[in-house]
Design a protein around this nucleic acid. Structure first.
Lengths: 337, 337
DNA sequence: ATGTTGATTGGTAACGTTGTCAATAATATT
DNA sequence: AATATTATTGACAACGTTACCAATCAACAT
């Protein structure tokens, strides 16, 4: 691949087109007030010599890029892929591009990734959750573009936030389980309860159970990743405690489904012997028999709205600074409770 | 000293540190041959005034960025999130950042996304599949950095390719089904068989069946997305044809699992009444009862290797140009065949 | 006829960094 | 001790674009 020659620049377009460099620039980036004649001349010349914009140069001069920083824990789960899909869809039609970083559930990486990301002068930032290190908060407070924190709305947003109330989710499930007559209720989490929003959900769950005179019997927090297998493992551990648990709320559907499959494989009747409830409402919950009771979170919508807010903010179409968007949660009652 | 509206530059670091701008630059980007004294002076000053590198400016001068373009169909599936996770892990420790674009299964978008991505002067490009439009191929042939095509290895790579042989997968399943005694075999696909690698798999499957004197009875290609529900729908459509099918190979696990759940809900015995096989080997296949027969693809490893090749190539650590990395497939025999 | 306004085009000077070349100081080699 | 390397620092000039300001011209109002 010939890197001997340098790619054509605006000067190379302007010269054969017989126009100034700045005019060529305006045509190439679709600036207003350009006559058809000029546009045509420039476009023809650009086509001819195979000109391609250099956004790096433009970004340097313009002091801002069309890059959007997105930092998520990981992609290997059923939440963030949908979020990212939503963001991307909302960014369609704009010039904005998504630059992705992953913390792999290591809280401290968020700061490092953000620090590096900011060296690219992004136009906007999307993070997950409302909890961040002090350095992260400081970097963001000095950041001039729009910032959206996704997933969680229980707390203070740096700029904008889109997500669900984790507390509401905990309360919804607590009431549901108690209403259904379960009295010895347990909780199962994973990832050592990182990120922190899972803690908010569990705590609200516990408090509501307490309020309903049905205190949480115990909780099992798996240190490792969240998966079907680990859900089954943690569930088995829970059963081994022999606490006559009659219902379990899991931090997510994967854990709950792992437990459900474990029950099916071990002739434990669900919900007669034990009831199971998950969180997120992934497609699988509705497709299996019995359908898993869960809380459906609008993941794609969260991503879409986050992307749309960023896009509008950058385009100057709206000003939603300092706003929090709390989307609806829905209890999906399956046959496991 | 100057403008407090603009972020500090190297000049603002160099001045209080009492060194030249270029020396400050060298320290900030970790160039070799810097004395400890200089490094310390610069780092102190940088810390003091809160200097942050401007990669845009550096990229303009250096003619290359540390951005890696990654174009995938979508994130809402069980394949590409793992790939992207793998890429990201392989890029850890380097300065490289992943810029993500999604075609949403519209083949023609790849070209548009790539065109836009190239305006950012990426250091490398990762695409999925080996099939691309002529324009895409031309843009890539003029691109000077490393290019990795992931997923598919049946064809010619532009530069490097990492993935599996789709044909091998088709053959493996064909042999397995025939060996198990199935004789009236069907195929179910989705997304209108975009991307094209699914066609390669199906065709190899058909040819091998033919060779084994058990020609494919029929295939159903769903036009829309791949999901559990659509798998069930397409499967139901297949059953409605009343062709006495005794085994079905699905384009992926989601479709197959959808069919399996449909069978479970409708008292169709698997594999006695009909055998089902999927493709990809997602975790769920092993967790349910009966375990789904499938072919496991090393998705994370494909992503990791792709990222690692890009990283090494850019660091000049290796030269794997024009190489194809065909990873192993494994038939996971469950209880559905 | 005389401004006035807006549309259209151009010139100049950054944007903040680093490649290249050059100079000097420190160390190794003969 | 003289010379050859190597390590360390600096000066200058790009990199390719666009913000800003200025100029021209046509259309329109007074």
């Amino acid at each position: 691949m010939g890197n001997d020659t340098r790619p054509p620049t605006l000067k190379d377009v302007a010269s054969p087109a017989g126009v100034s460099v700045i005019s060529a620039s305006r045509v190439m980036r679709g600036a207003p007030n350009i006559s058809n004649g000029l546009r045509e001349k420039v476009e023809t010349a650009a086509q001819m010599i195979g000109y391609r914009r250099n956004r790096i140069a433009g970004s340097l001069r313009g002091q801002t890029t069309d890059l959007i920083t997105v930092i998520v824990p990981s992609m290997s789960n059923h939440v963030f892929p949908n979020i990212v899909d939503g963001i991307d869809d909302a960014l369609q039609g704009s010039q904005l591009r998504l630059v992705l970083g992953m913390t792999k559930y290591k809280d401290s990486s968020e700061e490092d990734i953000l620090r590096d990301m900011l060296t690219w002068n992004p136009a906007g930032v999307i993070l997950s959750g409302l909890e961040h290190s002090d350095s992260t908060k400081e970097m963001l407070s000095n950041f001039s573009g729009p910032i959206v924190e996704v997933m969680d709305t229980d707390g203070d947003a740096i700029d904008m936030a889109v997500g669900n109330s984790m507390a509401e989710a905990g309360v919804l499930i607590a009431r549901h389980l108690v209403a259904k007559g379960y009295r010895r209720i347990a909780y199962v989490g994973a990832w050592g309860e990182r990120p922190k929003r899972s803690v908010k959900r569990r705590v609200a769950f516990e408090i509501e159970l307490e309020r309903l005179n049905t205190p949480l019997v115990t909780s099992v927090i798996h240190e490792g990743e969240s998966s079907l297998q680990h859900g089954a493992q943690a569930f088995k551990r829970l059963l081994d405690y022999d606490l006559k648990i009659d219902a379990v709320f899991f931090a997510n559907d994967d854990l709950a489904l792992g437990a459900l499959f474990y029950c099916q494989a071990n002739n434990i009747r669900v919900p007669q012997d034990i009831a199971l409830a998950g969180f997120n409402g992934i497609e699988l919950c509705q497709s299996i028999t019995p359908r898993l009771t869960t809380i459906s979170t609008p993941r794609y919508e969260i991503g879409w709205l986050a992307g749309d807010l960023i896009r509008k903010q950058i385009a100057g179409e709206s000003n939603s600074k300092q706003q929090m968007f709390r989307l609806d949660l829905e209890l999906i009652e399956g046959s496991t409770t």
